[in-house]
């Protein structure tokens, strides 16, 4: 079983519990072990960078150092955590002065970073390390006729990393095709959901959620698939409020890609955290209850 240093991030302990459950399950089905980093700490999200950049790097670096000790790829299911880890790792490599500074702080926890560490997003692991062909082989319950709107969000793609297409990526669609569903083309897939503003500037955030939901609904999506707990919470938990503010009646299920993947791999819905949702997934019962053979 291939192992990864898994960094769930704070959200997956609470609001995004089902992402955590479904990630572990889907990974296991495909022969991967997400080994949770022991005693990890919060990466500082976006808020910490508002206060002190260097301290924020220190927080991230502690987690990276913990992964380095294990000598495994650092894997984050949250795009925000991923972005923080990716760039902190990058800056530490590029700037020996910064690395020295951070390592001085890390000494307090008997840690050290020499790096570079491979920082990966969870979806990259499925797409690159497992691959579409391999996933197809394991699908026992293809999600036929399910129109899924893949939602990439921001921080997985941006700022630009190595050579990803930041404007019109396709790998999420390809993954959704691999599990038998029907990916929906819609213009907003890489637009921002505003989750980092949901507390501090709710008006702006709800506007972004509204635009996204509208676009997905116009393209007749059955469900929006997400790759980030913050996007998921934003699109799902605040749907009611969007309806109230904008006079709409969206009831668009929002699911983690790992939940859909898990379903296709034949995992029982309850083990994927399905049922913990605020927007009912009843409209999708046909997928969950009628296991089809491939």
């Amino acid at each position: 079983m291939k192992q990864y240093a898994y960094y769930p991030g704070c959200s997956l302990e609470s609001l995004a519990k089902s992402y955590h459950l479904s990630s572990i399950e889907a990974a296991r089905e495909l022969g991967l072990e997400l080994k949770e980093i022991e005693d990890w700490n919060c990466c500082g999200a976006t808020a910490y960078f508002h206060v002190d950049e260097l301290l924020a790097y220190t927080l991230v670096a502690r987690n990276l150092a913990l992964a380095e000790k294990e000598n495994l790829d650092f894997v984050a299911p949250c795009s925000g955590c991923y972005k923080n880890a990716y760039f902190t790792n990058d800056y530490l490599q590029q700037d020996p002065g910064l690395a020295e500074h951070i390592n001085f702080a890390l000494e307090e926890d008997n840690l050290h970073i020499s790096g570079p560490i491979n920082v990966r997003h969870l979806i990259e692991v499925f797409v690159e390390d497992v691959g579409f062909e391999e996933i197809k082989k394991h699908v026992s319950r293809p999600l036929k006729d399910l129109r899924v709107a893949p939602y990439y969000g921001c921080q997985l793609l941006r700022p630009k990393k190595d050579s990803e297409d930041v404007e019109n990526p396709q790998f999420f669609e390809d993954l959704l095709s691999a599990i038998g569903s029907d990916p929906v083309e819609y213009g907003s897939k890489t637009h921002c959901c505003g989750s980092s503003l949901i507390i501090t500037n709710r008006e702006a955030a709800l506007d972004m959620v509204y635009k996204l939901l509208q676009d997905a609904a116009n393209r007749e999506a059955d469900v929006i698939a997400t790759i980030c707990p913050l996007c998921n919470v934003n699109l799902e938990l605040y749907q009611k409020q969007v309806n109230r503010e904008f006079g709409t009646d969206f009831s668009m299920p929002v699911m983690y890609f790992t939940q859909l993947l898990g379903l296709a791999l034949g995992v029982e819905p309850g083990r994927l955290g399905i049922g913990k949702d605020f927007v009912s997934t009843d409209s999708m019962q046909f997928i969950m209850q009628n296991p089809q053979s491939s």
Binding site: C154, R158, P159
Partner: peptide
């Protein structure tokens, strides 16, 4: 800047 959602679209 307090309204910035950190989506990094402007950056790219």
């Amino acid at each position: 800047y307090w309204s910035c959602a950190s989506c990094y679209y402007c950056n790219v």
